[in-house]
Each structure stands twice: as C-alpha cells, then as structure tokens.
Design a protein around this nucleic acid. Structure first.
Length: 925
RNA sequence: GGGUGCUUAGCUCAGCGGUAGAGCGUCGCCCUUACAAGGCGAAUGUCGUAGGUUCGACCCCUACAGCACCCACCA
C-alpha cells in the first residue's frame, strides 16, 4: 500500500541511481532513428542555477519522450573550461592567501586550476542528476568521471588545435596588430561581444588647441587621451574650417604639433565640428588614422597607466588620475573651454565590469565573412529553424554584419595557441611542437603564450564531442543533432559560431532546430541577482530550506551593508517560512508549464506548490486505483466478459485526445501546452469525473461492469503515467512499478522501467463521439444540479429529490441518472410533466428544467432571478441587433447565423421562464 | 540610429476573425471511506490608446503610448 501522501526525496534517490547504473541513458548501437541533443556545456566549476534547471528540464523531457518513442537517444553532455571565469576564481583564491598567479608562474598556476577543476568539477553534474537528467554521462567521457567531455580534455583539445591549424592554412586565421577591447584588470583582450556598453551620466569637455593665427575647440569625453592625439579632423565641406585643412595646431601639454585633416567621419552638426583624433585609443579614430596614414600613438600601458609616449609628468598615472591632471593643467593654461554634464555610452568588460580600453596589441583573429555566408544560407532556406521563429532575425542580422573575431586571450587557463616564433620573429603554426621541430630542425622556437577564447572550443562541440577530427560513425548518426536548447544571450557567442564551424568542417549543420528558451526571472519579473537576494537555488526548491539557512546562504559573501539589508528584506518578505520541499517532479512540471514562447519566465513559487499538489493528486489517484484493483480481476486476460459503459468509453476517448495534444505540444516545443493537457486530463477528467463515477460502477452487481471499470481505471492510469513520464520521471516510475502489472504489462529484464516503455500514441479509432456527447450531458446535468444545491444553501448531508421535466437524451439513461444521483447527492430523481409550483430555483438544461424541491427565501430568490433576467435581456438585445443587421444575415456563413438564431431562441425561452418564475414568486407573497 | 518582444481577471500568463480562458489568490459551503497538498460552488475583465479593414476585431492593418531587451563608431 502506498503512503497517504508522497515523499519526493525518498523516491528520487532510489530511482536515479538505478537508471544510471542500468545504463538506460546511453545511446544504443544500430538503433534508428537517432535523436540527439547537445547540452550547452556549463562552466565546470559552476553551480546549477534556475536557468540551467529550466533548460535541462526541457531537454530531458525531449530526450525521455523520444527514448520512449524508440529513438536512439543521445544527450551529449560535458563541461566547459570557461577560461576567464575559472581563472578569476582561482586567482581570487590565491589573493586570499596573499599570493598571485605571477608568484606561482604559469605552469604551477595552470596545475592549480586543474586541481580546482577536479575538486569542484563534479558539483554541477551532481546537481543535474538531482534534476533527473537522463544524460549520456559516459559518452565522450575521456577523463572517466562520468560527466561527459571536458572542453580541455585531450580529445577536445586535439580538435581545437586541428581547427586552428586548418583555418590558419586556409588563411581564415590571421595575426596582426589591431586595436582591440582591452580589459586592463585582467590584462587581456576581449571580443566585441564580451563588452557591454551602457549609458551612464558623465561629462564632456571642450578643449582648445591653438594654431598659428587661429584655434580649434574639440569636444571629448576622455580628455586624458589627448596625450595620444595625432590630428584634429573637420568635415571637408565645413565652411568654418575649410581653409584650415592642412594647417597645424599645437597639441597642448605635449609640445607636439598635429595637422588639421578633413574626413567625412566628422559630423559638422555635432559639437564644434572638430574632432580630436586618437587612433591608439578609439576605434573610430583608428579608422580615420588609417585613412590619413597617421600612426597611432599608444599612451597607456596594459594596466591602463600613462606610458612613456606621454610627457614625463603624466607617466605612471592611472587613466583617471591622468584625466584629473590633464584637466587641471589645461585649466591652468586657459585651454579648457567648457565642462558639461553628458550622457555617454561606457564600454565595460562583461567579466570584470571595468571600463574597457581600446588598445593596440598583437592578436589573433578569425576572418568571419566566408564562414558566415553558409550559416546565413542555412537559416534563409529553413534548414536551420528557430523556435520561436522571430529569433531568426536576430541571428541573420548579426551574420549579415559580422566582424572578425578576436580569438586570442592573454590568459593562462585555456587552449594555448599552437603558434611558435623563431628568433627572427617568424611565426609557425603547427599541430605540435614535435611536428614543427621535424620540419625546422635546430631552430629555437618560442610558443605564443596566448590562449584561445573559450567560445572557440565551444563552437566545435557539436562535432568534436562526436569524435572529430577522426571519421566516426557517431558523426553520421548524431550530426546534425536534433535540437539545441539554449538562451538568446548566446545566439552570437555560441549558436551562430557552432553553425559556422560545423558547416565549414563537416559540411553538416550542428543541429536542425534551435529552441530559444525564456530567461528565468523572479515572480515579479525582476532579474535574479545575488545583490537583490531574489535568486533561487533549484536544489532548495527540490529539498526545501529553512528561513535561517536561506538567509545565511543568501547573504554570505555580500560585503556591502545596504546589499545585505536589501537581501534580508526580500527574503523576509518572500520566504518568511523558508521554502518547502517541492521535489524534482514538481519543479520540472512547473518549468514545463511556464515554458511558453514568451521571452521571460517569471518563476512563481505558488505555481510550484500547485504542481507539487498535482503530484500528490496523481499519487492518491493511484492509491485509490490500487485499493480497488489489487488482487481483483482487472480483465487483462479477457477470458471473462467485460462491459464498458459510456463513461468508460468516454475516458478512453479523452485519453486519445490528450495523447494527440501532447504529441502536438512536443512537435511545437510548446511545453506549456502539453503540460497543461496532462494536468487537465489527470485532474479534471480522470480524478474529478472518472474516478468518482468508477466508485459507482464498482458497486454494480454486474461483474462484467466491475471488470470493465477496473480495467479502464488501471489502463488509463498506466497510460497517463507513461504520458507524464518525460515531465515527471520519478513519481511516474515509482507508481508505474505498482500499476503496470495490474495493467497486464509484463515487466521483464530490459523493460523493468517506465523509461523504456513505449510512449502512448493516440488511436483515433478509439475516439468515441457518442460517449463524449453522453458524458457532456451528464456533466451538464450534474453541474446544473450542484448549482441548484449550492444556491439552496442546503445543510450538509441533506438530500433532496430532483424534479426534472425531461429525460436526458443519452444512450444509457439508467446509468446517467444513477450517476447524477451520486454526483449531485440526490435523494431521488422524479420525472414530472410540470415542475412543482414552488419558487425554488430552476435550472434549464437542454430540453429539461430541473428543480431541487425546497422551501426558499422568496426575497433572495427574486433578487437572483432579477439579476438573471437582466443578463439574459442583455444577451437578447445583442443577438437581436446582430440579426437585424441585414449584412450579417446575408454575408456571414450560414452556420454562424443559424447559431445566432438558436442562441436568441434559447435566450428568449429562458427569459420567459424566468419572468414566469418571478411573477409566481411575487404572486405568492 | 536600426531591430525584437510585450501590454488580456488582484498576480503570473495562455488564447483567438464569430458573445473572453487557466493556474495561483479571493469569497461561500463541506474533514463525502484516494487525496484538506482535498471536494463542491461563486465573484472578477470597455483584452494599452486612437483610427482603419470586415457582416463581425481581443485577434488582421496603421499610427501612438508605455515597458523590456538586442545590435550600432557620433567626438
């Protein structure tokens, strides 16, 4: 016997273990068709957050669904070395110990990061297991840790080198001194995508540069960069300055003179129409400088201090110190014309938040244009499909305006670039140093110290995880993968680049569909952030957490007092009693239910509670079924006669419809629809109606009816469990084990799990419209009668007779009335030609009028009827107006007009009855 | 400057050319032997604003407003 309510923790522990150790998650050789999903590899040292949990729930649902449908499923998982992020973490650890990576040296430092990876690397994969992820952990698992590939393991690294070398050989990778976004804190270049520009309140200054018999005023938001100015630019057509083009001005503070140049880039309408040109520290100016053959002057060191190209006075000053000094000196010389408040866009490094400095450095780039073209083609032709579709635009537009990709990072943790230099500075790219030494014996070679952007290796995952560069069978089977489930924030970082790389190196798409999932927000739609305290840990929703523990956990590591206070406030307001344990299934069902095509997902704890209750409902329904079927004849062998009533046939029919709805939901990636369909079927149809009616049928003296009921109870439940399994794997497995034998499922060695059972498939031939019509009537009569009951304010337990002026037009009126009597808790049902002469409320159902005979309060009843009359009168007016409109009657489709006529007729009839009642009521007084 | 999405019940969201739906919340009544994590019932909306198309618009079109996000080199 099942416990009275379900305890998720116990169930979940039991099943995951068994599934994994039985090897159910693995792909199967020679089974077709294939279904493959590539997990966006999480940071190896990271922890699971709501976004992961959401994504992974959807992926696992898809994988389980297809596995049950007989696909050869392969959920390829792995972890990402996350270059910058991981290096930062370890550097912080060192900092706490009062040391630094520079003290350690590169080799020791990298060793240290590996240690940290080994130590914390399993956290996130352990958490994924708690979610029930049926991932192929042992696939591409070269390190033997059952967490898939690692982007820096030997195999994945080999693919990285191979791709780098090939692209270099094809001329698609080049090295050059370019202006790049530089993070002066990390001391590395970052790509355009890793820079976030936000509008901030700042200032703009106007500086005067004196010429011989004139002076020019330039505007700047970064006065310190004037130390590196090489020109002042004006628009060639600008009448104010046309005569000055080619003349020189003095660059204050530096003793240099610079030319006045003409360039279309200048907008004469903006500011003074004169622009200072600093090619060494501004992307626009860099282009201008190139056009005019002006060499850039770098005035900052790599940690953003003024360098030796500036006058001695400023050397060594940090950039913002230098700004103050420059401004002070310009003021002293009377060259500062104005200082105004100004809204400016400040580029900040996504990782550190520090203001990025455009810096002229040697970097490696991938030339993107030739790679982008086929990727664009794929989306244009529809070979690559986005869900929701509108993300295609985002993808297309980025590819249409693609820029070369700066792939080198001045970090230590990552794939070191396979390039070497000889003493003369010549560059050699090779697969290994050995290969190079063979080619160039005796040469002294020094390896490029830079590593590759983390996204470089991520871009290869769809094929490198399948064994590339070797030719493997898996690439034939699992490439392209079926769908990529990921967030819109990495469409550029990752999705587009995977498409480009896969097409280029394998000729195949990395995936056919891209499902862009919503961003998880808190219940109010606010971004989840540690400093607000509104983050949720998926594990806390699964296991529950007490208020104190939650508070402590949320405030740990928050240094600022006002942050702490804010977080405390939030937690007190939202989680005064902590968070109850909802269990994995409830959490998963919540995610699925909220996964519509909208851009954000506001995670509501109450929703989660509701779905926990749903799990409990399913549990208890099973309890009921088991109590009534275990040890009894459930007619599985069909040896004895079985009778199925319209009620049995109705639930079977409904089941076919839900199965179809669920299939449609999966096909459309509308997880909300399919979760809703399952929810409504289990709760609103099976539990609320079928189980209640089964209670009646189980008391039928005819054993064939009992057998039919038991069989339907069991089979419908067993099917529902399979239907729901992709969303709520644990509870369905637990219950299925008990229910399946009663449903005649032979549990054998390989199929000893719901996971590998066939997924329910809608059988249209079992849709029974007649039974559905009968059931609709039964429901209608029942609801109407229950309404009468509620309106009569009957004391509990009191049963009244129901007077009805007609029989329900169903195939089996006897059963129908018995059911009505039970469901509406009636004393009996009397058929009469005329309702009793009573002011008691009357319900109209089809042809029949129903009354629960009872003395009523005439005043209250009169009021109720008057209200009803008002409503019906309104409806009649609307209908009449419509039908009076000749163009409606002539031009609307016939059935619509007919429907309107019937509506009017029914309403008129109802109105007459209500008016009679009201008259009677008033007359009685 | 370009682009995208959103605006529907108190809250969070579905929906759709033919008289508005769900979950949660609210309000009654009920511990009816699967489930109080439950049952039965009820209330609640000029579907952002203004036009247009249509016999008919929450839905299609146009403009506007508000919110959010993405991309972009204006000093």
């Amino acid at each position: 016997m099942l416990d009275k309510s379900f305890d998720p923790t116990a169930i979940e522990e039991r099943w995951y273990q068994r599934w994994e150790s039985a090897g159910y998650f693995r792909q199967q050789a020679d089974k077709t068709p294939a279904y493959c999903i590539q997990l966006p590899p999480p940071n190896v040292t990271g922890t699971l957050h709501m976004g992961h949990a959401f994504q992974q729930t959807l992926m696992d649902a898809l994988i389980r669904y297809h596995r049950m449908r007989g696909f050869n499923t392969n959920w390829v998982v792995g972890t990402d070395h996350a270059g910058i992020a991981t290096q930062i973490v370890v550097e912080r650890q060192l900092e706490e110990k009062g040391t630094s990576r520079h003290d350690l040296g590169r080799e020791k430092f990298v060793e240290r990061v590996w240690q940290w990876k080994q130590q914390s690397g399993s956290t996130i994969t352990r958490q994924m297991r708690r979610l029930g992820a049926s991932a192929n952990w042992t696939y591409a698992d070269t390190e033997g840790q059952k967490s898939g590939y690692f982007t820096m393991d030997a195999h994945m690294s080999r693919a990285v080198v191979e791709v780098f070398v090939r692209l270099y050989e094809e001329g698609l990778i080049y090295r050059g001194k370019r202006l790049v976004n530089w993070d002066p804190v990390l001391g590395t270049a970052v790509s355009d995508l890793e820079v976030d520009t936000e509008e901030e309140d700042g200032r703009i200054w106007e500086l005067r540069y004196p010429g011989e018999d004139f002076s020019l005023t330039v505007a700047t938001t970064r006065p310190e960069t004037m130390l590196g100015d090489v020109a002042v630019a004006v628009h060639p057509q600008d009448a104010r300055y046309r005569d000055l083009i080619g003349k020189k001005v003095q660059l204050p503070l530096t003793g240099r003179t610079i030319p006045v140049i003409a360039d279309e880039y200048v907008d004469p309408q903006f500011g003074t129409g004169c622009v200072k040109i600093t090619p060494g520290h501004d992307f626009n100016d860099y282009q201008v400088g190139r056009r005019h053959n002006l060499d850039p002057i770098s005035v900052f060191t790599l940690d953003a201090r003024v360098n030796d190209h500036a006058p001695a006075k400023y050397r060594g000053l940090e950039r913002f110190e230098a700004r103050k000094q420059v401004l002070a000196d310009l003021t002293a010389q009377g060259l500062l014309v104005a200082e105004k408040p100004y809204k400016l866009r400040v580029p900040r490094s996504g990782r550190t938040g520090v203001i990025v400095e455009p810096m002229l450095t040697d970097q490696w780039f991938v030339a993107m244009e030739t790679l982008a073209r086929p990727a664009l083609h794929a989306s244009k032709t529809g070979e690559l499909k986005f869900y929701p579709e509108h993300w295609t635009t985002t993808y297309d537009q980025w590819l249409e305006n693609i820029q070369d990709w700066c792939i080198s990072r001045q970090l230590w943790w990552g794939h070191q670039i396979p390039a070497w230099y000889d003493d003369a500075g010549n560059c050699y790219v090779a697969r290994s140093e050995e290969e190079l030494k063979k080619k160039h014996p005796g040469k002294k070679l020094r390896r490029d110290p830079d590593v590759l952007d983390t996204w470089f290796s991520s871009a290869l995952v769809p094929f490198s995880s399948l064994g590339w560069p070797e030719k493997t069978k898996d690439q034939e089977v699992f490439l392209p993968s079926s769908v990529l489930v990921t967030g819109f924030d990495i469409i550029f970082f990752w999705v587009a680049r995977m498409v480009m790389m896969s097409l280029h190196f394998t000729g195949k798409l990395p995936f056919r569909d891209v499902y862009i999932n919503a961003i998880v927000r808190d219940a109010e739609g606010e971004k989840m952030s540690k400093s607000k305290g509104n983050t949720l840990d998926p594990l806390d929703l699964i296991d529950g957490i007490a208020f104190d523990a939650l508070l402590k956990k949320s405030t740990v590591g928050l240094l600022k007092a006002d942050h702490r206070q804010k977080v405390e406030g939030y937690i007190k307001a939202h989680f005064a009693n902590g968070i109850p344990a909802f269990g994995t299934d409830a959490l998963r069902f919540t995610f699925a239910s909220l996964a519509s095509f909208s851009r954000t997902l506001n995670f509501d704890l109450n929703r989660c509670e509701g779905y926990r209750n749903f799990c409990n409902k399913l549990w208890n329904a099973t309890r009921f079924v088991l109590m009534n079927t275990e040890g009894k004849d459930c007619a599985q062998d069909e040896s004895r006669p079985v009778k199925l009533s319209f009620i049995d046939r109705w639930i079977i029919s409904r089941l076919q419809r839900v199965e179809a709805e669920v299939a449609q939901g999966f096909a459309d990636y509308r997880f909300d629809n399919l979760a809703g369909a399952i929810y409504r079927f289990v709760w609103d149809e099976y539990c609320d109606w079928y189980v209640e009616l089964a209670k009646l049928q189980l008391q039928d003296p005819d054993e064939a009816v009992q057998r039919g009921t038991r069989r339907t109870l069991v089979r419908t439940l067993e099917t529902s469990l399979r239907l729901a399994h992709p969303l709520i794997p644990f509870i369905t497995e637990e219950l299925w084990q008990k229910v399946a034998p009663l449903a005649g499922k032979r549990v054998n060695a390989t199929g000893d799990t719901i996971m590998l059972q066939p997924y329910p498939k809608s059988q249209p031939e079992r849709i029974d419209e007649a039974a559905e019509r009968d059931m609709a009537l039964l429901k209608e009569w029942t609801v109407a009668t229950r309404n009468l009951r509620a309106e009569s304010k009957l004391p509990p337990g009191e049963r009244l007779p129901l007077y009805a002026t007609a029989q329900p037009p169903v195939s089996d009126p006897r059963l129908m009335l018995a059911a009505l009597k039970a469901l509406a808790r009636l004393e009996e049902i009397r058929h009469v030609a005329q309702l009793p002469d009573s002011p008691a409320p009357v319900a109209v159902v089809g042809e029949a009028r129903l009354m629960l005979y009872k003395e009523v309060d005439p005043a209250a009843e009169a009021e109720r009827i008057s209200k009803e009359i008002a409503r019906v009168t309104g409806e009649i007016a609307k209908s009449k107006a419509k039908l009076a409109n000749s163009s409606f009657v002539e031009r609307a489709p016939k059935p619509v007009v007919e429907q309107e006529r019937q509506r009017l007729a029914a309403a008129a009839e109802l109105l007459q009855k209500l008016q009679d009642q009201l008259k009677k009521l008033r007359g009685d007084k």
